[in-house]
Structures are given as structure tokens and as C-alpha cells.
Design a protein around this nucleic acid. Structure first.
Lengths: 237, 237
DNA sequence: CGGGAGATTGACTGATCTCAACCCGGGTGG
DNA sequence: CCACCCGGGTTGAGATCAGTCAATCTCCCG
């Protein structure tokens, strides 16, 4: 995706968002004029749990994680988002405080659009409104699935699942090495456990020839089996 | 809430739903004409996980639980809903398969309204559409909170929490006895554990003078402390 | 070369699950 | 009328999974 500096480029970038497919050309122009383009470094915070969020954020390029603070300061990553996805949606819509902290995991290029501008468009375009409803409901579904995952899967299965997630979000190079140098601590908070448990599990996976470890680099050797593992207990009878 | 048999009564019953507050009188009339009124026995299934849901359901009276099937057939209650709440919202909106099974926990009186009818109203009334968006986002927020709960709270805290939930949903009589004879197994699937663990926890609570047990009857002796317990670890630093 | 952060490993602990036994009350069939 | 059965409910013992704590290792950096 190209950098969006002027209105035309911005318009072009926004067109790639499935979310906006029902906008008319005029609405898209109006939106483009009101989007603020920003670039952020890795490890920047877009917004913090408990703060106001007044903009919807379109990710043009890069990765973010949404983190909820849990018991004893333990963090839980509830979502990774990449280029083409939108964030801040829930807080913006309900005009309530953010219930996650959102942080970049790579340099980020994103467009910020104010709540009021979006509301105007919603009021003028019911197809778009319906699209937003659908979007919210899809996120809801994802989140509900996640509950069962976290509640009932074992760490082994969750680690496998997170590896697959990381592959989908960050991608892999030609050798199936994850294109990210995520820390064990970060993996742990995505799994919902402590770093030591992640390390033990990764070592097991290495012994089982599922992955290869080389420092922070993780090479996925058997993606089908990892995928199956991540589902195993949920669908077992 | 009264039984809604004719259009006028139906209209009256629907007026009590916060969800519908932005409808015009005409829209409300139109809705009333299209709502199908039904009464269901205890332990009836409204819809099953994996099936199509083509109606939004307004609960006039009674309680339902929404259950997701998890690993090894273990079930997880992800929500209780009572009079004044709506269900089937997500599946209906995305026109996808239900991701929960919804079952009555008492005799139920409810109104069923077809997807198409609702879509018409959404198209004609953007305030209503916005209200639906808000509704979806609120549910999303609840669900996200629930994740951290399930992922990080201990069984003790979760049991306390579910007791408070049961109080809020089913109510208590003048002696603070829960107005439900829910089984230990059902409590377990709301907590995300096995019946034995629930029983042990309830026994502990009894020894700690938090509750009194008498067969299936549960009397809440110290609601403030139960409430505090249910929050304890999440907000501890 | 020293310092520090993250990664790794081992030993231990504790929470929770599993399994099995037993209890209790209600309903049923003889 | 009563013995029986069955489905919860309850309890205990033991196993297991995952978290804690502490020691060590390995980089990377100044």
C-alpha cells in the first residue's frame, strides 16, 4: 500500500478498506479530506486503556496489538491487527473510554478519522451503517470464540494457535521464519500465560520437530500439524 | 411486564425496550404488526449453535442462557439474559450461523421479529441504526471484559462473580435466597470449570459465612464481600 | 569488559481436574 | 407400601498442569 500524502493518494488507500466499500465517491472524498495521516515508530502507543478515543484508525501499513490489563498487572493481548484493518472502533462508537491499550509492533502508517465526520457519513448512508453493524458483529463473534479458547484450551494448544496467528499477521519469509522478533513475554500475553511456560512449550515443539528456534527467530516446520493442534481439543468429542 | 397478545399490548411491551427508543410511532406500529409472540417452557432451545437465526428475539419475561460448546463437549455459558434484553442479535445481523445455543432457564415469553422487517427499519431510521451499532459495541465490550475474567481470575473469584450475576438475573427473595434452582453443573459451565470445583468452592463460601446452602437453595449472606471478591485480583496491583 | 535484558532450565508449589466412592431424595414398578 | 434406581450432590485421594522462584546463560550494548 502506498503512502497517502495528498487527497488522491488517501482516497486510493482508503478504497482498499472493505469496510468503506459502500461509500459514494462524494462520501469518500469527504472522508479523504478529513483523514489525518500519521506515521508512528515501533512500540508507540496509539491509545491507552481508560482514555478517550475520538478517532477511528485505518491501518495502511504495519502491525498493532490490542492489550487489556488483567489481574496483578498481567497483560492479555486480545487482538493483533494489520494493514487493511481498522481499530478503535468500539470506543469511538460508544463514546466510552478505551477498554484496551493499542500499541504498534512495527513502524506504522495509519489514517485517523474523527468520530463526528464518521457519524455524518453514517447518517447519510444506511448501507454504510449496516456495514458497520456487520463489522461490529463479526468482531463480537471473534471475541466470543476467543473466550472458549482461553477458557478451555491448554497452553500447548494456545501456543500453537498463537504461532499460526503470528504467521497470518506478520507473515513468514521463504524459509517459513516468522517475520517478527516478538519476545517470549509478548507471546505469553497473547497466550494468557507466563514467559516460562511459553519457553517450555516452544522447546517441546522444537523437540517434536514442529518448529526450529534460533535466538528470537522462529521457523515453522509443520504448519498443518500446528494448525491441527490449535483446534484439537475444541472439536474432540 | 404484561402478556402481549394484540397489537396494542405488543406495542406497549416493545416500548419498554431501551433498544427501540428511537423508533417513530409509525415504525413501532409496523414492528408490532410483525412481531410473533411465543411462550416457551423451561429448558426449551430457542436456537442451536451452527443453525441459521432469522429473527431477533425480545425477551418479555423469563431467563435464557447462551451457551457455547467448547473442548471435549464441555459447555461454557457466555451470557444470561432476562426480560428487557434482546438475543440473537449477532447471528441475525451478519446472517451467519449462530455461534451459541440459547436455552430457556424458566418459562419464557418473547417476541420474534424477522430480519427483513428489522432491516427495513434500519434503512429508514439512522438513529436506530446508530443505536444498534452502540448495542453491538457494548456487547463487544462486555465480551472483552469477560475474556480477561476467564483467562486470569481464579475459580474462587469466578464463582463469587457468577453468584452475583445470578442474583442480578434471577433476583433473590426477601431472605436473599436466589430465585432459581440452578444445578451445580450449570454453575460450573458459567464459571468455566467442573461441578466438583464449584461444590468445593460453595462449601468454602459456606464455611466463610458468605452463603448458606440448603439443597439447591443458595442464600447470599454477604453480598458486598462476594462482590468485592469477584473483583479482587483483577484490580490488585 | 561489565551491565542488563531477555531466554532458558530446574525444582518446587499450588490450584484445579479426574476418578471413584458414597449420600440423598424423588419417582417408579412390583 | 416399599425396595430399587437414577440423577444430582458431596467428599477424598491422587494426578497433572501450569505458575513461582531462583540460578544460569546468552546476547547486545555502551
Amino acid at each position: 500500500m502506498r503512502v497517502a500524502y495528498n487527497k488522491k493518494d488517501m482516497n486510493q488507500s482508503l478504497r482498499e478498506f472493505e469496510f468503506l466499500k459502500d461509500l459514494t465517491n462524494e462520501e469518500m472524498d469527504y472522508l479523504s479530506e478529513n483523514v489525518i495521516y500519521r506515521e508512528l515508530d515501533n512500540k508507540s502507543v496509539l491509545y491507552r486503556e481508560g482514555c478517550k478515543v475520538d478517532s477511528l484508525i485505518f491501518i495502511f501499513d504495519g502491525i498493532v496489538k490490542q492489550v487489556k490489563c488483567g489481574s496483578k498487572g498481567k497483560e492479555l493481548v486480545i487482538r493483533f491487527a494489520k494493514a487493511g484493518e481498522i481499530i478503535g472502533f468500539r470506543s469511538m462508537m460508544t463514546d466510552e473510554l478505551a477498554c484496551t491499550t493499542t500499541e504498534t509492533m512495527s513502524p506504522l502508517r495509519a489514517g485517523f478519522i474523527k468520530r463526528d465526520c464518521l457519524l455524518e457519513i453514517i447518517h447519510s448512508n444506511t448501507s454504510f451503517a449496516l456495514n458497520i453493524i456487520r463489522q461490529a458483529c463479526l468482531e463480537l463473534e471473534e471475541t466470543q470464540k476467543f473466550i472458549v479458547n482461553v477458557a478451555q484450551k491448554q497452553i500447548r494448544e494456545r501456543v500453537a494457535e498463537v504461532l499460526i496467528q503470528l504467521k497470518n499477521v506478520f507473515g513468514v519469509d521463504e524459509d517459513n521464519v516468522l517475520k517478527t522478533s516478538i519476545t517470549r513475554k509478548e507471546i505469553a500475553s497473547a497466550v494468557g500465560t507466563v514467559p516460562e511456560s511459553v519457553i517450555r512449550m516452544l522447546s517441546e515443539f522444537r523437540d517434536d520437530k514442529l518448529i526450529e528456534l534460533n535466538g528470537k527467530k522462529i521457523k515453522l516446520l509443520d504448519i498443518p500439524r500446528l494448525t491441527r493442534m490449535s483446534y484439537s481439543s475444541v472439536y474432540a468429542i
